[in-house]
Computed example of a mutant assay.
Amino acid sequence: MEFDVGARLKEVRKAKGLSQRVVAERSGVTNGMISLIESNKSSPSVSSLKKILTVLDIALADFFESETPEPKQFVFRPADFVEINPQQIFSSDDEPALEALSIKKVGNSSTNSLLLLYEVYEAGADTGAEALSHEGEEGGFVIEGKLLLEVDGETQVLKAGDAYLFDSTKPHRFRNVEKERCVIVNASTPPTF
């Protein structure tokens, strides 16, 4: 089932009581572009959508969520994990690389200050040719397999049992260049998507 980005953006914007013009001015995205996105005549880039959602005070992952767990919940079973479609977060010309990636979020970014992700990188999975960067810190553990991690131009191969921790304002990228799947548990603060 296709996610209706335009309808969701319009719903969130109206719930915040903001006009397209105000959101445009505050985000640096043109009013016309917001109108085109809301009418589903144009798809936003990840960068543009993040700028708009920052003004609306909603994390990228929460934008794509239809249901969120109860704020008082502190135990999460696999059925409570929210699958995040990598194609809605990362930009890549290599669709199979994104299809080979599964990201499951625990909790709700609007009520928690930590983003916790369970990520499965099948063979060839990649977060995209364009490195990511966002506010905060990011860290995690490789549970299974091997992962190629690039941070600020430096590349390292991590294997099961290894961990990473870095300033996430530095450009970074995750890739599985092995034939076996890789599983990681990733945490970042503040929640960015």
Rank of each mutant, 00 (worst) to 15 (best):
S35M: 05
G32L: 01
L18H: 08
S19W: 05
L18Y: 03
V29E: 09
K16E: 13
V23G: 01
L53H: 01
S35K: 09
S47T: 13
L53S: 10
V23Y: 09
E25K: 12
G32D: 07
M33T: 09
R26F: 04
T54Q: 10
K41V: 08
N31E: 11
L53F: 03
G28L: 02
R21Q: 11
I37V: 14
T54W: 05
S42K: 15
S42G: 14
S27D: 04
S45C: 05
K41D: 06
R21W: 13
I34Q: 02
N40T: 06
I34K: 06
A24H: 06
K51D: 04
N31M: 14
S48L: 11
R26H: 10
V22Q: 13
G17Y: 09
K16G: 08
N40L: 09
S45E: 10
E25W: 01
R21F: 10
R26Y: 05
R13I: 03
S42H: 08
G32C: 02
G32N: 12
I52T: 14
A15F: 03
A15D: 05
G17P: 15
P44K: 08
M33C: 11
L49E: 04
S43C: 03
S19C: 08
L53K: 02
T30I: 15
Q20W: 07
E38C: 00
K16A: 15
V29D: 01
M33L: 15
K14H: 13
S42F: 09
S47D: 15
S47F: 06
S48G: 01
K16L: 10
I37M: 10
R13A: 00
K51T: 05
R21H: 12
S35V: 03
V29F: 03
V12N: 00
V12C: 03
V29Y: 02
S35F: 01
L18R: 03
A24P: 09
L36C: 07
N31Q: 14
E25A: 15
S47V: 13
K16T: 07
N40C: 11
G28P: 07
S47R: 11
M33H: 10
K16C: 07
K41N: 14
S48F: 11
N31K: 12
S42V: 13
S35L: 08
V22M: 11
V12K: 00
K16V: 06
K14C: 07
S19N: 00
R26T: 11
S45Q: 08
G32W: 00
V46I: 12
K50G: 02
I34H: 03
S42L: 12
L53P: 09
K50C: 10
V12T: 15
S43R: 10
V22G: 00
A15Q: 05
R26S: 11
L36D: 06
T54G: 10
N40K: 01
L18N: 03
K50M: 14
S19E: 13
I52F: 08
T30R: 05
N31F: 10
R13P: 01
K14Q: 12
L36M: 15
G32I: 02
I37S: 08
T30G: 11
S35P: 01
K41W: 07
R26I: 09
P44F: 00
V22R: 12
K50T: 10
I37C: 08
S43N: 12
L36W: 08
A15H: 07
I37L: 12
